[in-house]
Design a protein around this nucleic acid. Structure first.
Length: 424
RNA sequence: GUGGGCGUAGCUCAAUUGGUCAGAGCACCUGGUUGUGACCCAGGAGGCUGGGGGUUCAAGUCCCCUCGCUCACCCCA
């Protein structure tokens, strides 16, 4: 170890080093392309918001708000634990609903939750968040879900889609009461967590992983049987739409949400390859949220978030196409004069849109060739005393075997000698 | 907040019952006749074995404490 390098990144905070960044960029590139095809526009949002925003939207009693937020207590501001609240805040603040009745937005960036880190779960993590604000049409639900499926498919992900409806303020309370009475009858047979849940968040009992609890809830009342006519109709159209587009899904009447604002359609794209962090993307409808945050009444919304760390983990373990780092041209100078000329050419070639690498440490030609190879250079241009003398450098094709040619020591000649496909 | 696993070179890991055990592979650097990569060969650099204390003639190797990492629970993307 060098000098006291004692300061390390915080627990749950990770550097994404250059070798991994390629994968992240690939992920973002594919995602932006898909979002664009579905005509979503990017919005960039602040990372810090008033604490109140999250308390009101996510819910005071949720775990996120109760114990996982990074809050500056003396300032009443919080590092965002998710993006939907900010998205809706911006939607209201800028009157976006006036500019365009239905807004289709996405944002990409870091989120912060103070949880114990584990596989696929960090304290600073990254999400791609997609939202449609201003439409209640079930076709929007279908389109959004289909987009998620298309994105994951294009990334080569093996995931499955689970779907449920949570009802609305008109029908959920009735169901909740039924469920509570069902749970209470079996209270003694539940695990300790579920005993606690039965009062704090009874719906959570439905997705407990303890086998004995699962046995108890197999016959629990299903929300789907308690949906009001409007919700039932809406959910039916969502399912029909998914079938029309050929998006496979599985009904999961036990799937619930951790955030208060969700209603009606909820869905998760899950994988079996990430340990306990199975959800790579999840979301749902939140028709009351805009109004709760002070926006216009009757402003429905739906969206979902994609966990980028989780996707990167999957890409890595599924050994998906890992893009390689490479440069077009490596300039190898021999001796002070040669590297001096090379230095000038490198700059000129970069101005001509070629990516160019060069060594400044006075390495031997052999060493520079090795560097060029490692950098993934397509071509190496060699300039030494002899070349300065003749006015022509040696252009070597690194992909072929021993293919070399002489090229005048000028950026114009060099650019002509290189394949046009390299120009970026 | 609760539980389990683990901490030896940049990375992945070895080191018999505590006694040349501080190593290998990869990566890195330099060479293999004057100025040419990938493969190969030869050298080299790199670790106070996470930190502190204890037991012992002797400790990566045993005990205690501490810090860190990791997986899982809770919860969630």
């Amino acid at each position: 170890m060098e000098i006291a390098l004692k300061i390390k990144a915080l627990k749950g905070f990770k550097d994404i080093v250059p070798g991994e960044v390629l994968l992240w960029q690939y992920l973002e590139r594919v995602a932006r392309d898909v979002f664009d095809r579905f005509h979503f526009r990017e919005i960039r949002l602040p990372i810090l918001e008033e604490t109140e925003l999250f308390a009101r939207s996510i819910g005071e009693a949720t775990d996120i708000v109760e114990k996982e937020m990074y809050t500056f207590v003396d300032k009443q501001v919080t590092m965002r634990p998710e993006a939907t609240a900010s998205m809706v805040r911006a939607y209201i603040e800028h009157g976006l609903y006036v500019e365009k009745p239905v807004q289709r937005l996405f944002t990409i960036g870091p989120m912060f939750r103070h949880e114990r880190p584990q596989k696929g779960r960090l304290r600073q993590f990254h999400q791609m968040d997609v939202e449609v604000l201003g439409s209640e049409n079930p076709r929007v639900d279908v389109e959004l879900i289909a987009m998620g499926a298309m994105l994951l498919d294009e990334l080569g992900m093996q995931v499955s889609l689970e779907l449920n409806s949570l009802g609305c303020p008109a029908c959920r309370p009735g169901y909740r009461a039924e469920l509570i009475s069902y749970i209470d009858k079996r209270h003694d047979l539940l695990c300790s967590d579920c005993k606690r849940r039965s009062t704090t968040n009874p719906l959570r009992v439905l997705d407990c992983k303890v086998p004995s609890c699962r046995e108890q809830i197999v016959d629990a009342p299903s929300i789907l049987e308690y949906l009001c006519d409007q919700c039932k109709d809406h959910f039916g159209k969502v399912q029909a739409g998914l079938e029309q587009l050929g998006v496979p899904y599985r009904l999961n009447k036990f799937m619930v949400r951790g955030l208060d604002y969700y209603c009606r359609t909820t869905f998760e794209f899950i994988t079996a390859d990430l340990g306990s962090q199975a959800a790579v993307a999840a979301g749902g409808r939140y028709d009351g949220l805009v109004e709760i945050l002070g926006g216009p009444k009757n402003s429905p919304g739906i969206g979902f978030a994609i966990g980028m760390e989780r996707l990167v983990l999957l890409l890595q373990q599924q050994q998906a196409v890992i893009p390689e780092d490479e440069v077009d041209l490596y300039i190898a100078g021999i001796g002070e004069q040669g590297s001096r000329k090379g230095f000038e050419l490198a700059n000129a070639m970069r101005a001509r849109k070629f990516s160019v690498a060069m060594d400044h440490e006075g390495r031997s030609l052999k060493s520079q060739m090795k560097q060029a190879n490692k950098a993934g250079a397509r071509f190496v241009f060699i300039i030494g005393d002899a070349e300065l003398e003749s006015g022509k450098g040696i252009l070597r094709n690194m992909l072929g075997n021993e293919e070399q040619q002489e090229v005048l020591l000028s950026a114009a000649a060099l650019a002509d000698a290189l394949p046009e496909s390299l120009v970026s």
